[in-house]
Amino acid sequence: MKPNCKFLLGLCSMLALGFLYYSSGRLTLRGWGHKSCKDLNTVHLLNLLSPHSRPLELIYKYGNLSKGACKPGFAAAKMTAIYPKFTKPAPMFLDPNFKQFSKIGDYFPPFGIKSQEKILDILLLATKSYGLGEELDNCKRCIIIGNGGILSNKSLGQRIDEFDVVARLNEAPVKGFEKDVGSKTTMRITYPEGAIQKTERYESQSLFVLSAFKALDLRWLQHMVFSQSLRSTEGFWKSVAKHVPREPGDMRILNPYFIQEASFKLIGLPHNNGQMGRGNIPTLGAVAITMALHNCDEVAVAGFGYNMSTPHAPLHYYEKIRMSAIKESWTHNISKEKEFLLKLVKAGVIQDLTGGICSAGC
C-alpha cells in the first residue's frame, strides 16, 4: 500500500504543478498603461524550472494546440531559455508615462530619451494613441518583413498576410510585389532618411512608427505630426520625407529601449558610454525583431540575411542593386548581428520563412 500512496501523492503533485503552469499562461499582466502580452507569467514560471526541463514543459503547454493556433507566450518562453534575463515587459511605443520607464531615462538617443522629454510630451499629447488597437490586445502572431532580395519569387504573400501583425521597414514598397511580400501592413517602422518620400506610395491604412536614432529625428517628426513645412534638412545624412500622409493618431514613437537592448544585451555591441559610436548601432531589422519578442506571442521573419557568396544576387527585392554593393558600415556590425539572428533561429525563438539567416547552415 505504501508504494501506491507515494505514487498517488506524486501524481497529484504533478497534476497540481501542471495546472499552475497552464494557468500562468492565461493570466494577464498589465504594465506601463498597456494591456500586456500573456507571455510574461509563462516566462517567470519558466525561470523557476531547470533549463533542462524547459523543452518538456513547452511541449506540455503547446503540444495540444490545433494547427495554426496562436501559442500564448511562446516566443518569450523560448527567448528566456537562451537569454535568462529576458523577462521584463517593454511596451512597443512611448506613451505619456514614458518617464516611469527608467531604463531609457539615463541615455541620449538612440538608446534613450534623455534631454528629449519636452518634445516627447508635445508629440504624445498630439498623437493621443499609443498602442496597436484593442483588436490586437490578445495573442499575436507577428512577422517582420526585411527588404532582402531573397523575398523575390518565393510567393509568400498570402502566408505573410495571415499574420496578425505585419511590420515593414523603411520605404520597402508593397504595390506591385504583393505575390512575394503580401499586401497587409500593420505598421511601417522607419527613421527620417528611410521614410517613403512619395506620398502616393503609402498604404491606405497602417501605423507610421518612428525609430529615433538622433534628437533631430524627433524634431522631424514634430513637423510631420503638425504638417509643418520642413525648412532645412541639415543634419540628416541624406534626403528625408517632407510630408507623411498620416493623421497624428496613426503615428507612434518606437520605444528606444529596443535599440538599447538589442545593442548592448543581445548582440553584444560596444557600450561606448551609452553614446552612438562605431559599430554599436543595431540595424532597424534587429530592433524590430527585439520589439516583437517583447510584445508578440509568436515571431517570424522574412527577407533577412545577406549571402556574400552570391555577389550578383539582388540586394533588395524591389531594385536592381547587387549584393556586392554592401560596404562596411560605420554604425552597424553585420557579422555580430548575423550571429545573434542565427542564434534565435537555431533556438526556435523566431521562424525564418525565407531561410536567409541560415544560408550558411543551421
Rank of each mutant, 00 (worst) to 15 (best):
K2F: 15
L8V: 13
L8D: 12
L11I: 11
M14G: 08
Y22G: 12
Y22S: 13
S24M: 07
L27M: 14
T28V: 12
L29S: 11
G33E: 10
N41T: 10
L45C: 10
L48F: 12
L49T: 08
H52C: 09
S66V: 13
A75W: 01
A77S: 15
M79K: 03
Y83A: 11
T87I: 12
P89T: 12
A90C: 14
M92Q: 07
D95K: 10
N97Q: 13
F98H: 00
K99H: 06
I104R: 06
I104G: 03
F108A: 13
P109C: 07
F111W: 05
I113T: 15
S115M: 07
K118C: 08
I119F: 02
L124G: 04
L124F: 06
A126P: 00
K128C: 07
L132W: 15
L132Q: 05
G133E: 06
E134I: 11
D137T: 01
C142Q: 07
N147L: 02
G148Y: 07
S152A: 15
N153S: 12
S155C: 10
I160H: 00
I160L: 13
V166C: 02
R168E: 06
K179R: 15
K179C: 04
G182P: 04
G182Q: 04
G182D: 04
K184I: 06
T190S: 11
E203F: 05
E203L: 10
F208T: 03
V209R: 02
L210T: 09
H223Y: 04
Q228S: 09
Q228A: 08
A241L: 00
R246C: 02
F264P: 04
I267T: 06
N272R: 12
G277W: 06
N280Y: 07
A286Q: 02
V287E: 01
A288D: 00
H294A: 07
C296T: 02
F304E: 00
F304N: 00
Y306H: 10
M308W: 12
T310N: 09
Y317V: 03
Y317Q: 01
K320E: 15
K320Y: 11
I321K: 15
E328F: 06
S329C: 07
W330V: 10
S335G: 01
F340I: 01
K343C: 09
K343I: 01
L344E: 05
I350N: 03
G355P: 00
G355Y: 08
G355R: 04
G356I: 07
